[in-house]
Simulated scan of single mutants.
Amino acid sequence: MSIAPESRILVTGAASGLGLALVRQLADRGCRVLATDVHTELPDPLRGLDRVAYLSLDVTQDVDWAKARDWVVEEWDGLDYLFNNAGVAAGGRIELSEMDQWQWIVDINLLGVARGCRTFAPMLKAQGSGHIVNTASAAGLVHPPRMSEYNAVKAGVVALSETLFHELKPYGVKVSVICPTFFKTNLTESLRGKDESANKSAAKLIDNAKLSADVIAARVINGVEKGRHIILTDRDGKIAYAAKRFARPLYYSMMAKASVQMSKKD
């Protein structure tokens, strides 16, 4: 089912990357979009966009989610699509990942999504309609070495999304989870951690990626319209996930090779 003009849509992490691309493309379709991000003032990339309102929202804060819910009720009297997109990046060898780094990425990437879902699930259930779209990663389905915290939180988002897919289905509410591999974005700006080798490798993969956030956003919207639960946006992710599901020895061989290559750089 196509995303109809005038659909009421909330997007988190909307000031850059995939979130910004989604906002622009959804607004171009005639949707009404509430773009949210941690910035207290309207971010420059969102200025001048028709049909787009802005609200400061820190996904780690319950009070901000409550404000977003109140805004939606007062301005729109309901919500059609919730895109839980805000996220950050971290990775590296397990012994170099400190617990404050784990807490930081869990709070944003996993609990931020959980807060969004629990805030709006009652509204969507009462409506008997709506669609939650959670941004995870191919790292939530396949788990390369030296990405412990990132893999863990993205796998958590996949698990949460599958749980809610079943839990909310009787109420007419749909749930999708986005699982892209590397694409060009500003995610490298959020990279944290003491493992400089891992940070450099991640930055290189993102910077050299062939696909743009605009391309990924278009494929996400297409997947949502087709009602897909797991939305794989690129060939590499589809191959890796298929290998894990149907050719586990090949998948383990791929992960072992990657681990050996990384260890040679230590």
Rank of each mutant, 00 (worst) to 15 (best):
T163C: 14
A89C: 13
A121M: 14
S56K: 11
A21R: 12
A242Y: 12
E74H: 10
V63I: 08
A86H: 02
A53T: 05
I105W: 00
V133E: 00
G237Q: 03
R93I: 03
A121Q: 12
A258G: 11
D80A: 14
P45V: 00
S263R: 14
R146K: 11
G30R: 05
A256T: 09
I105D: 03
G223S: 04
N222G: 06
G116R: 04
W76A: 06
V158N: 01
G78F: 04
A90L: 06
F165G: 08
V63K: 14
T233Y: 01
H39S: 15
G156H: 10
A90Q: 09
H229R: 12
L79Q: 01
K265W: 04
K210Y: 06
R245N: 05
L250D: 12
P180H: 02
Q25E: 13
S212T: 15
M99L: 05
N134Q: 07
S137R: 05
L168H: 00
S201D: 12
S56T: 10
D28R: 13
N134K: 07
L232W: 03
A121N: 02
R235W: 07
G237P: 12
V177K: 09
N85L: 01
A114D: 13
E75Q: 14
E6R: 12
T233W: 03
Y252P: 03
S212M: 11
R29G: 02
S161I: 06
I105Y: 02
V63C: 13
C179V: 09
S197C: 01
V177R: 10
L57K: 08
A155Q: 09
T60A: 09
N222A: 13
C117Y: 10
L160T: 05
V142T: 14
D207F: 04
L57R: 09
L187F: 09
A198Q: 01
L34D: 03
Y150V: 05
Q261I: 05
T185S: 15
G223L: 10
R93N: 03
P5A: 10
D107Q: 10
W102T: 09
I3N: 09
A247M: 13
S7T: 05
S56M: 07
A218M: 09
T163G: 15
Y81H: 12
A89T: 14
G87Y: 01
A198L: 00
A240C: 12
M254I: 15
F182W: 07
R69C: 10
V224C: 14
V106R: 01
L124I: 03
W104D: 00
L34F: 11
A217K: 11
T12Q: 10
K184F: 11
G13I: 11
S137V: 02
S197L: 02
L10N: 02
I94N: 02
I132F: 14
R192W: 06
W104F: 06
Y81K: 06
W65F: 15
T233N: 01
A209C: 08
K200P: 00
A89Q: 13
E225P: 13
V38E: 04
V23R: 09
A213C: 07
S212E: 15
L20Y: 12
L82T: 12
R47Q: 12
A198S: 01
P180N: 15
C179F: 11
K226Y: 05
G78S: 10
